[in-house]
């Protein structure tokens, strides 16, 4: 498998199949995320980086013995561990009896959101999701710090019109039709998270995918007019601040951090509002981070073209 392009495409297909498998295991939210993040964005980023890196892998002899030994020991440890596990799908496993029943039974009363995964994600374990948004923000900061592009390369590249995308007439027309729908679908997913699969992450990624499609087809400089890189950087921070801000507001109103009961007079309404705002914060951060990462990768390709 010396052609990295094939490796990346196969890993994309692998994520798609695993997404469908998740669906079969009743994990609808996870399937949606895996499809959009795993198959979508990660394949996209790998292809973008492949453009900068040599596509064909040199046939080098690799050292299988050490790897084989380490892998076998870990495998043995794992197999050893699986022997006493509760059987697949049994209802009386400790996992289903100790903590989970309360989510399923009381969440309708306490939070009033049919999609229990969203209620656990945003309210019961809301702090985990804040941490997770911070992880995405850290990755954004990391990529921004590593792939910095100086001001003057940005100016010079304005004059550079991407020739190859000019005559893709059909693609551009279809894209003109598709992109608004993609963005609208993203917003639908964002606010539909309470009732069906969806939520901040998936919406953010789909929104970013729309914008990335636009950038690929109509060129970086045109899309920079609409989405200036500096404002997007601010948006990555704005999302996390929104999420944290909601938590702080709850503290100021008397509850603990991220306790939405205190947002409104009636606790259930407070939960609704809290979850809505929090999901919006997550959506903004994820969308802007994915966009920024893609912009930084494309700036790098422009920088290479400009230098040659």
């Amino acid at each position: 498998m010396s052609d990295l392009f094939a490796v990346v495409m196969l890993s994309g297909i692998y994520s798609l199949i695993s997404a469908s498998l998740f669906l079969d295991l009743d994990a609808v939210d996870v399937a949606f995320t895996e499809a959009s993040v795993g198959a979508g964005i990660s394949t996209l980023l790998m292809l973008a980086s492949l453009k900068l890196v040599s596509r064909y892998q040199k046939k080098t002899r690799y050292k299988p013995i050490l790897a084989f030994f380490v892998v076998v020991t870990t495998g043995a440890m794992l197999i050893y561990g699986t022997l006493d596990m509760p059987h697949f799908g049994t209802a009386d496993a400790p996992v289903h009896t100790h903590v989970a029943p309360r989510y399923l039974n009381e969440s309708m009363g306490e939070i009033g959101v049919p999609n229990v995964v969203t209620s656990v994600l945003a309210s019961y374990r809301g702090y985990d999701t804040l941490g997770e948004t911070l992880v995405i923000f850290t990755a954004g900061i990391g990529v921004m710090a590593l792939l910095m592009v100086s001001k003057q390369t940005k100016q010079e590249s304005k004059k550079l019109i991407p020739a190859d995308m000019q005559q893709q007439i059909i693609l551009r027309i279809v894209a003109k039709m598709m992109i608004p729908l993609i963005l609208m679908f993203a917003l639908y997913v964002q606010f539909h998270g309470d009732y069906g699969p969806g939520g901040g992450f998936q919406a953010g990624v789909i929104f970013a995918a729309g914008i990335i499609l636009y950038t690929m087809l109509f060129g970086l400089s045109t899309s920079q007019e609409v989405f200036k890189a500096t404002t997007i950087e601010l948006f990555t921070a704005a999302g996390v601040l929104l999420y944290g801000g909601v938590g702080v507001v709850c503290m100021l109103l008397g509850g603990n951090f991220l306790d939405y009961d205190f947002l409104k007079h009636d606790p259930v309404h407070g939960q609704h509002l809290g979850i809505l705002l929090v999901e919006l914060g997550v959506g903004i951060t994820v969308a802007s981070v994915m966009m920024i990462i893609f912009f930084k990768f494309t700036w790098r390709t422009v920088k290479h073209k400009y230098k040659k």
């Binding site: 893709q168 059909i170 693609l171 279809v174 039709m177 598709m178 729908l181």
Partner: peptide
Amino acid sequence: LFSLLASTTASHAIAK
């Protein structure tokens, strides 16, 4: 509708 629109454009793009 979407799948018809998208898949045909995709195969066109790959062929091109």
